[in-house]
């Protein structure tokens, strides 16, 4: 498989799909997703070993965020069974640290990064944060999360005034502060330029290794992630396919899975482009 020339993928050939009881971050058995009577995708069967770095790929509107909602417990599967760390996902569970899609803070948002991160710790609890200043463990958890993402320099500035990259780091800290086992990031790179994308991906990989987390990252473009990926989940054409990137992101594999002519093109810098999965591309082959 193609790796980015700047940071070659570490040799990691352990059988990630091996079924080892108790070590699965997420298992899905014949899961289907539907909104009302409209089925989004079905027949998703996969198992993700704990500690994997996973990308969820696929065209817009194919149901990537639907999978995220099921993993978070915000949406029940229409069929089948999905478990997170051996249990049915529960809304608000602290085992998952979550960064939602398209987070754009109001420039007038007058709350410090530090207080925003604190919300990730106990913002869902009722009542006043009484005596929070007298709880050193709470303070330490917040400071640890800020340091883990390297945001100490601007954690006391108002969120709305920070750059996209800085906000993304604080969002990550907010997801990490509750000490989750799984990090679920919905398109964390979409609002960033290429340089910041690389920085944030590197940071996520670093944190995941240090805290032995499973990372599930929804992405539009696989290229910034290639050096870290263990697994790819492809969501397209009503189906969910899972495999190692070098096995699944090939013209043959994707064409076979989706029974459609799909081309995987590599440019001379090793970047990958998938053509033919987007519904619009199929409908208008000459477009663009």
């Amino acid at each position: 498989m193609a790796a980015r020339d700047t940071s070659p993928r570490p040799a990691f050939d352990a059988p990630v799909l091996a079924v080892t009881a108790g070590l699965e971050a997420v298992t899905a058995v014949d899961v289907a997703a539907a909104y009302g009577r409209r089925t989004i995708w079905s027949g998703a069967t996969f198992s993700i070993q704990h500690g994997s770095f996973l990308a969820v790929l696929g065209p817009n509107g194919a149901g990537k965020s639907t999978l995220v909602k099921i993993i978070l417990g915000l949406l029940q599967p229409a069929a089948g069974r999905l478990d997170v760390l051996g249990q049915r996902p529960r809304r608000g569970s602290s085992v998952i640290g979550y960064v939602p899609q398209g987070m754009a803070f109001d420039p007038e948002l007058s709350i410090r990064g530090r207080d925003f991160i604190a919300l990730g710790l106990d913002g869902h609890r009722w009542g006043l944060p009484l005596l929070s200043w007298a709880r050193p463990d709470r303070k330490r958890a917040i400071t640890d999360a800020i340091e883990a993402v390297g945001a100490a320099a601007y954690a006391d500035r108002p969120m709305g005034r920070l750059s996209g990259g800085e906000q993304q780091r604080l969002l990550l800290a907010q997801a990490l502060v509750g000490r989750p086992r799984v990090l679920l990031l919905d398109e964390p790179l979409s609002n960033l330029d290429v340089k910041n994308q690389g920085t944030i991906v590197g940071l996520i990989g670093e944190v995941a290794r240090a805290q032995s987390l499973t990372v599930i990252l929804v992405a539009h473009d696989v290229n910034p992630l290639l050096s870290l990926l263990d697994l790819v989940v492809y969501v397209a054409h009503g189906r969910v396919a899972v495999g190692r990137p070098q096995e699944i992101i090939t013209s043959e594999a994707l064409s076979r899975i989706y029974s459609a002519p799909v081309d995987v093109i590599k440019d001379r810098r090793g970047r990958i482009f998938v053509v033919g999965l987007d519904e619009n591309e199929v409908a208008h082959p000459h477009a663009g």
Binding site: L72, L74, R91, G92, S93, Y98, P100, Q101, M103, F105, L109, I111, F116, L119, G120, D122, G123, H124, R125, W126, G127, L128, P129, M159, Q174
Partner: peptide, 22 residues
């Protein structure tokens, strides 16, 4: 006083608060 934290959370971002069970 009872609503303080969840209210602040959902004021900052509703999606995030909803995912955390608010």
């Amino acid at each position: 006083a009872l609503l303080y934290r969840p209210l602040l959370f959902s004021s900052v971002d509703e999606n995030l608060a909803a995912a955390r069970g608010v």
